[in-house]
Design a protein around this nucleic acid. Structure first.
Lengths: 338, 338
DNA sequence: CTGAAAGCGCTTACAG
DNA sequence: CTGAAAGCGCTTACAG
């Protein structure tokens, strides 16, 4: 049905292996022979079958990206970086959403090992640990993105959570806020710990004690941000600023503030690790720590391809700097609009 | 090296084909035999090689999603829908960003045909037409998302651009705006035409003539929205509202308004086809036409899988209703904040 | 209910 | 510089 290498070979008057050599640029081929083969390929609109090639050569030129949810703008941008870098090196990318569900992770892992992908880029959760050690025993290469995982020694690319959190906290403390609350993600995640540590470090450096009632630990979801903000607002001594541990929490913070009819930034300042998606300068009045998500994706992919090529032995942990984006209010004491 | 079907067969004391039958649930296998095979699979941690399977069976259970840019929140959400539906049917998804670049489209098409994907989900541009007719001649199944393409008869899933645009325009006209400008995408796209037609239809229905100076046609990019808004602001008789043809244009509109130190919504109302990403109720004060992006992704995938299964002969064009989300200002005459 | 043979379309390893 | 043979790991088609 479809044109095969043998068909091309026949037409060019050579053997299949010569066609293979022309296509892959391996070994010597007489110039004239090569021209004949190329002409035949062109004329017959031959498209090599990479399934057969992969079956024989034991490599697929295919990677997979496992993220918790592509809909989160951080991961969207990471994905774009991954895809650009992969495409540049002629690799294809399988996209998988795990929803932080180990069962889904397992199902994808099965699917991907069956397809013999050359490597995985993974945005892990604490529950991923067992899957990751299985990858190690299966000798499947992978790179972690965004978070390190306890007990797993693996290439990792992430942003400087501790430094970013310290910076933004310090910014608030030096602009007059005495009571900055922190709503963070699980301490079982490296980002949860690092951001909390940064928040703490900034207080230490400023010589300020922390009211432990100002620290709320939940999950990286919008509802969590909403609930914990309500707790903060219900307390006797409210904070004057809330530091959201990621963009989803920040949305929950805004939800709770709107519900309480509080106005930004005068009634409450809100800052966030990770920006809100897309609207750039037009979102709520949030100063934010910006992560180099696109670069994270590109670099992680590069690292993985090196690992696949066995170009490296040591485990690499790459930590990229974050950027503090300061946004002032419009001075109109506006509430986020619904 | 890796465990093969033959290894499993040997251990279970059967032939490879029996193992195959157990795995695929094809043909009869004695219960006891099946149990022995399953035990062997389990014990040896056998993972079938889908490359070999695909090579023989001529199907890969793999689809590809070609979008212009996954970073656009509309496409992100479509991708999520695609991936969920595909995963539910045990299909994997290759993600490809084309950046509206025919050369990139071609490169991906080559990559994907080599990998023998079962079908493609495509967010096309007008320049995709030649690629699409090539797909037809290659007999590769595909479904178009978001836009129809001139001269290409193919399954299509999109939202009701004309109806949505008419609705939102009508909303503005009935709330007192006399001069609603329209900044749309290329008229070579079905969305460009349909949205403009909806805008026009609403005026007709209201018995209002349209000042042709209020209609600006550009591209679906932020810069285009910015430039054309500047033109509108420079005109003698300004509009009182601007209707952006998609979310990127809307961002450009906001850029231009901020630059002109104009305040929303009192100095200028802004409405948009397609919402701004992510921030839901917290973005700028924009009433918007919302597209069911997630459903578009799911339905398109379902359609493609039907097509692959040869379950259908006629070409289907599915048009999903949009939703008008009305957002009022906060009453504080605020400017979008930077 | 089970299997031996052939073949999917390439590349590897060995020759010449 | 080129090729014949073998094999990657499955499933198809045919038997029994």
């Amino acid at each position: 049905m479809a044109v095969t290498m043998r068909d091309v070979a026949e037409r060019a008057g050579v053997s299949a292996i010569t066609v293979s050599r022309v296509i892959n640029g391996t070994g010597y081929v007489h110039e004239e022979t090569q021209a004949r083969v190329l002409a035949a390929i062109e004329a017959m609109r031959y498209v090599p079958n990479s399934l057969a090639r992969s079956l024989r050569s034991q490599q697929t030129s295919t990677l997979a990206l496992l993220v918790t949810d592509i809909t989160n703008s951080f991961w969207t941008t990471v994905a774009r970086g991954v895809e650009d870098e992969a495409a540049a090196q002629n690799y294809a990318i399988f996209l998988c959403n795990t929803d932080e569900d180990p069962a889904k992770e397992d199902r994808y892992l099965e699917m991907l090992t069956q397809r013999r992908v050359d490597g995985l880029l993974i945005g892990p959760t604490p529950d991923s640990a067992s899957m990751l050690s299985r990858l190690h025993t299966l000798d499947i290469k992978f790179v972690l993105i965004d978070r390190a995982v306890d007990g797993i020694a693996a290439d990792t690319v992430r942003s400087d959570s501790r430094g970013g959190a310290a910076n933004i906290t310090q910014h608030m403390l030096t602009t007059g806020h005495q009571r900055v609350a922190f709503i963070g993600g699980p301490l079982t995640t490296s980002t949860g710990r690092d951001r909390l540590n940064g928040y703490r470090a900034a207080h230490m450096a400023a010589g300020l004690a922390i009211d432990t009632e100002l620290i709320k630990i939940g999950s990286y979801h919008r509802e969590s941000g909403r609930e914990l903000t309500s707790e903060l607002l219900a307390a006797e001594r409210r904070p004057t600023a809330i530091f959201a541990g990621n963009n989803q929490i920040a949305l929950g913070v805004l939800d709770a503030l709107v519900a309480a009819r509080m106005h930004l930034p005068n009634d409450m300042a809100v800052i966030s690790f990770d920006d809100l998606p897309g609207v750039d300068g037009y979102g709520p009045f949030m100063t934010a720590v910006i992560q180099p998500a696109y670069q994270i994706g590109r670099i992680a992919t590069r690292l993985l391809l090196e690992r696949i090529a066995d170009a490296r032995d040591e485990v690499e942990e790459i930590v990229l700097p974050t950027q503090l984006v300061i946004r002032r209010s419009c001075g109109c004491n506006a509430v986020p609009v619904v």
